[in-house]
Amino acid sequence: MRLLKKNIEKSIEYGEEKNFFNKLNKIYEEIQGGECRGCTSCCMESVNTFYIEFLNIYKHLKNRPELYMKLIPKVIEYYFLELVENRPCPFLDKDGRCTIYEVRPLTCRLFGHLSEREHNENYKNVLEENRESRDYFREEYGIEIPEEIVNYKIEYCKEFKVDKRAKKQERQSMIDDIFVIESSFFMKELITEEFLGTGLVSWFAYSYFDLDEAGDYRLDIMREYAEQGKNAILEKVLKKVIDDKL
């Protein structure tokens, strides 16, 4: 199962026809921005992203082909190495600025609006999932995920300042509203259930590789990286991506 570019284009057309992108932006506008020192400490993972959000970002980058071609190798490399090496979000530029800030997904926009207790509860869930992934790769493939990856935590930001934080109920309402939009793409069979809960980086990876192919490449690249500390397979994969046209 691959996220075919022709289906992405059909999805964008459908989203524009149904005014979904404007609806998404109205949801985003409900979130009050705050004061951020721009340390990018929170920009260290591929956040879960709704399909309509991916389409919004894809559309944004399609209109900026030079930026797209500059970002996509970094994005694909991040996808294949995220379980073996900690690295910042590939959508940051060399100065630590977000290159997709105006179309960033909901999770990024809500960072800082959660209470410290909620933030730590989320980390517990992430840690449990990471440990399950560690055990799975160890038992099924003999690949060790480094403990610094398994236990990595984005610390709660006490310096983010905002006049009005979005309450839990308000945040859930935003998620529900976006999911209603999301459901339309499933009903039109433009996307399938296999893609539920996909991270932003993975959306782009799946537009170049089908799920099984991406999984096989990831195993080979992780194994080579763990055993030899080099990325010969990854270099071949990236060349394939670069040679593919937008």
Rank of each mutant, 00 (worst) to 15 (best):
residue 108 C to L: 08
residue 197 G to F: 08
residue 120 N to T: 08
residue 18 K to I: 12
residue 215 G to Y: 13
residue 75 V to K: 11
residue 133 S to P: 09
residue 71 L to E: 15
residue 16 E to F: 12
residue 28 Y to W: 10
residue 154 I to Y: 00
residue 92 L to W: 14
residue 213 E to V: 04
residue 160 F to C: 05
residue 243 D to N: 10
residue 32 Q to T: 06
residue 193 E to R: 06
residue 111 F to Y: 06
residue 179 F to K: 01
residue 214 A to I: 00
residue 154 I to R: 01
residue 50 F to E: 03
residue 61 L to G: 07
residue 92 L to D: 08
residue 58 Y to T: 10
residue 162 V to L: 10
residue 70 K to L: 14
residue 115 S to E: 07
residue 201 V to D: 08
residue 3 L to Q: 05
residue 6 K to M: 15
residue 89 C to H: 13
residue 102 E to L: 04
residue 113 H to M: 14
residue 111 F to N: 04
residue 171 R to E: 15
residue 75 V to D: 13
residue 69 M to T: 12
residue 23 K to C: 11
residue 160 F to W: 02
residue 64 R to H: 13
residue 228 Q to I: 10
residue 205 A to L: 05
residue 64 R to Y: 13
residue 48 N to W: 04
residue 199 G to K: 02
residue 148 E to C: 00
residue 111 F to E: 03
residue 203 W to M: 02
residue 241 V to T: 13
residue 94 K to M: 10
residue 79 Y to F: 04
residue 104 R to K: 06
residue 38 G to Q: 07
residue 112 G to A: 06
residue 95 D to P: 04
residue 216 D to C: 07
residue 105 P to V: 01
residue 23 K to Q: 06
residue 2 R to V: 11
residue 138 R to P: 08
residue 174 M to G: 11
residue 240 K to G: 15
residue 80 F to S: 15
residue 142 G to H: 01
residue 185 F to Y: 11
residue 170 E to N: 08
residue 202 S to E: 05
residue 206 Y to H: 00
residue 182 E to P: 03
residue 1 M to S: 06
residue 141 Y to M: 10
residue 89 C to F: 15
residue 68 Y to S: 11
residue 100 I to W: 01
residue 43 C to F: 13
residue 200 L to D: 02
residue 174 M to Y: 02
residue 30 E to R: 09
residue 53 E to D: 05
residue 16 E to A: 09
residue 179 F to Y: 03
residue 189 E to I: 12
residue 152 Y to P: 00
residue 106 L to I: 04
residue 225 Y to H: 12
residue 171 R to Q: 15
residue 59 K to P: 06
residue 51 Y to G: 01
residue 82 E to C: 11
residue 29 E to M: 02
residue 61 L to S: 07
residue 107 T to V: 11
residue 10 K to V: 10
residue 9 E to I: 12
residue 13 E to S: 07
residue 111 F to H: 04
residue 222 M to C: 13
residue 167 K to I: 12
residue 149 I to G: 00
residue 105 P to E: 02
residue 44 M to W: 14
